[in-house]
Amino acid sequence: MAEWLYEAGIGEARAALVDHGRIVEMAIEREDGALRAGTLIEAKLVRKADATGRGLVSFAGGEALLSPVPAGLTEGARLMIEIVREAIREPGNVKLPKARAAAPGALPSPGPDLKARIAATGVPVTSLLPHQPDRLEEAGWSEAIEEAASGIVASPAAMLRIFATPAMTLIDVDGTSKAETLACAGAAMAGAAIRRFDIGGSIGIDLPTLSSKAERQAAAAALDEVLPQPFERTAVNGFGFLQIIRRRMRPSLIELIGQDRATAEALALLRRAERARGAGRRTLVAAPPVIARIERAPGWIDQLAVRIGAGIGLRTDPALAISAGHVETDHIQA
């Protein structure tokens, strides 16, 4: 039976939908102050619609793109807006949140947090605690995080390379099997990865070139079997390319983890420190960017110290890979 595993970690909340012992969906919600999708907030129209048809609104703490701009609304006017897509970080840039005018009479309210979102699916939710068995790890959490960070998903049947670009997410399918076999396996793996990493917006899948219509239809059917609706897609064209459009409300895990690896590894190290066996002071040892990220958020260390009831130390080791952080404990329990 499927269930959501939920963990309220330091700096982020985590959730995984586990079915038959494996993760089929996962989500991370950072404590970064960004407005969540579904938030209702009062804003001021700063700029009416430009050539893209989107206006610009400002509110306490930030700005958002507004579409459509209500007819007759003048610059400087105030209105209630609903956040429909959260801000998305890109290399060297941050895409502003997207918003729409809220329904008449709407009052300010925060959007649902991660725990509320997974509870709304109707699937049972189990909250995990650090002293309990690590069911996220048992289901393959760290392996899935590494896939999201590297953009590489490999199996004996095929290998995917996933690239998040400003225009779309691209998935390249590679392997050594016959084209029709590889296309079906790769399409199924791509559909599973799209679901697992919550990839939305425009998605392109580059499959091997297929010579017949029947082979192209079989590859598309393999994707349809593993990727739940709603989504729209094209047929597989003669060059093996398939495009998908899914609703996009927040960054995918490919974007969240892959484009800020230091933060992802810092939070993962704090998670390991919470679960480290032993007693006494914990020392977190990691590559310099990871330790620097933790030092920029002193509240994380304070929370960790309270949760485990012990002092915390930090030590950089330039020889370590960014993902090779570990925790040293003064007194190891047998």
Rank of each mutant, 00 (worst) to 15 (best):
T169E: 08
D19C: 12
A279N: 01
R281T: 12
L160T: 13
Q243P: 00
R161A: 13
A334L: 09
A305M: 07
I171F: 10
G62K: 10
W300F: 06
L45T: 05
S67M: 12
I118F: 02
L107T: 12
I162N: 01
K95F: 06
G186K: 11
A222N: 05
E274V: 01
V306S: 14
A324S: 13
A49T: 06
E42T: 11
M159K: 15
V24K: 06
A262G: 05
R117K: 15
G21S: 14
R293N: 10
A119T: 14
A266W: 08
R272P: 06
V24L: 07
D134E: 13
T176P: 04
R275S: 09
E225K: 15
I312Q: 14
F239C: 06
C184A: 14
A27P: 01
L170S: 15
G92P: 03
L267N: 03
Q303P: 03
D330N: 10
G258T: 12
A297S: 14
F231P: 01
R250W: 00
E146T: 06
E29H: 10
G111V: 12
I245K: 08
R85M: 09
T209P: 03
I245F: 11
N237Y: 09
P108L: 13
L304Y: 02
V327F: 01
L207H: 11
R36F: 01
A16V: 10
A157D: 15
L40I: 02
W4G: 11
A77D: 15
I245A: 13
I41T: 15
W141Y: 14
G105N: 06
A167K: 08
G72S: 13
R216G: 00
R135L: 15
A273W: 02
L182I: 04
T165L: 12
D224P: 04
I199S: 02
A192C: 10
D174P: 11
Q243L: 02
R277Y: 08
R89P: 04
E137G: 06
I254D: 00
L253N: 04
A268I: 07
A99Q: 02
R22C: 09
R261K: 13
E86R: 04
I308R: 08
A187W: 00
Q333S: 12
I41H: 05
K98A: 11
E146M: 05
G313L: 04
V327N: 03
E12R: 13
I205K: 01
R14D: 03
E180K: 08
G62P: 07
R78A: 15
G309S: 09
A149K: 04
A219E: 10
G55I: 01
L73W: 00
L45P: 07
T169V: 14
T283S: 05
V84N: 11
R271D: 15
S155T: 13
E295I: 11
V236T: 04
K44S: 15
G278T: 01
A157T: 14
R117Q: 15
K178W: 06
A262I: 04
A324I: 02
L182E: 03
M26G: 08
V24A: 07
E265K: 05
A77H: 12
I294S: 09
